[in-house]
Amino acid sequence: MFFNPFSKDNPVVVQILGICSVLAVTAKLEPAIVMGLSVIAVLAFSNVIISLLRNTIPTNIRIIVQLVVVAGLVVIVSQLLQAYAYDVSKQLSVFIGLIITNCILMGRLEAFAMGNRPWPSFLDGVGNGIGYTIILVVVGFFRELLGSGTLLGYQVVPQCLYDAGYVNNGLMILPPMALVVVACIIWVQRSANKDLQEK
């Protein structure tokens, strides 16, 4: 339950959820990591809260209740980021707020937290959050390395390579390349896990 979402049931590359934020925040590694941590926190706690409330929520307004819980948690995360990591929260701008609309959240709340006890829901939330973060970090790693020649803001590609004629790949900074990198991850993953391949 906890380890499944890392690879076999990964929310991004298997369930294809939360793609928009993967495109938006992965141009650099640092915002990708912060975004991943935020999603882990919001997902874990909203899963727990909804799981605690699951027997009292009327079915016909459950989506609204889920949204209120998620929105409350997102506001807390957003305020915390603004207080302690102002620069990163500037870079992430609207995307922290848009965690509310991240399909992974609604998906996990609907599919898991509504029907399970709090502790499994917590594990499920953290697991899926980490699965999402892994992809974010991998994509952010390649995009920052190839697009800017840096990692977490530090110069990684040595100057002698630039002197020899190497140039950063400007396309990696643009959103299309995030899709291509995600596609590559999916490719590698499906080649490794035969049971994921469609007939």
Binding site: V167, N169, G170, L171, M172, L174
Partner: peptide
């Protein structure tokens, strides 16, 4: 197109 967008200066 890849060259055009990836290495505009060149």
């Amino acid at each position: 197109a890849f060259l055009f967008f990836a290495y505009p200066a060149q």
